[in-house]
Amino acid sequence: MEELLGKLREAASAETVSFQRILQAVEDTSFLPVLMVPALLVVSPLSGIPLFSSICGLIIAFVAGQMVFGRHHLWLPEAMTGKEIRARRLRDGLDRIAGLARWLDRNATGHGSWAMRRPVRKGCELACMTCGLAMPLLEIVPFSSSILGLAVLLFSVAMLARDALFMAMGALLMLTALSLPFYAINAVAAVML
Rank of each mutant, 00 (worst) to 15 (best):
S53F: 04
S53N: 03
S54I: 08
S54W: 09
S54E: 13
I55Q: 07
L58N: 12
I59N: 04
I60D: 03
I60N: 01
A61N: 08
F62Y: 12
V63R: 04
V63E: 01
A64R: 02
A64D: 01
A64Y: 00
G65P: 05
G65Q: 07
M67E: 03
F69A: 08
F69N: 13
G70E: 01
R71I: 00
H72V: 01
H72E: 14
W75N: 05
W75I: 06
A79F: 04
T81W: 11
G82A: 11
K83W: 10
I85N: 01
A87W: 02
A87I: 09
L90T: 08
L90E: 06
R91Y: 03
D92Q: 13
G93A: 08
G93M: 07
G93N: 08
L94Y: 01
L94V: 05
L94K: 01
D95K: 14
I97N: 10
I97D: 09
A98R: 13
G99F: 10
R102F: 01
R106S: 08
R106I: 04
A108L: 05
T109Q: 14
T109P: 00
T109R: 15
T109L: 02
H111G: 00
H111N: 09
H111W: 13
H111T: 13
G112L: 10
G112I: 08
G112R: 12
S113W: 11
S113H: 12
S113D: 08
W114M: 05
A115N: 02
A115Q: 10
A115D: 10
P119A: 06
P119I: 05
P119D: 12
V120N: 08
R121E: 13
R121A: 10
R121G: 02
K122W: 11
K122R: 15
G123K: 14
C124D: 06
L126D: 00
L126R: 15
M129Q: 15
M129F: 09
T130L: 13
T130G: 00
C131W: 04
G132V: 07
L133D: 10
A134S: 15
P136M: 09
L137Y: 09
L137M: 12
L137P: 01
E139M: 03
I140M: 11
V141H: 03
V141S: 03
P142G: 10
P142Q: 12
S145G: 13
S146W: 01
I147M: 07
L148A: 07
L148S: 07
L148W: 09
G149A: 10
L150E: 07
L150F: 13
A151W: 04
A151M: 02
V152A: 05
V152I: 07
V152D: 05
F155A: 03
S156V: 02
M159G: 07
M159H: 02
M159C: 09
A164K: 04
L165D: 13
F166P: 01
M169V: 06
M169C: 06
M169F: 13
G170Q: 02
G170F: 08
G170N: 05
G170W: 03
G170D: 07
A171D: 03
L172E: 11
L173T: 04
T176H: 14
T176M: 11
A177L: 03
L178P: 01
S179D: 08
S179E: 14
L180S: 09
P181L: 02
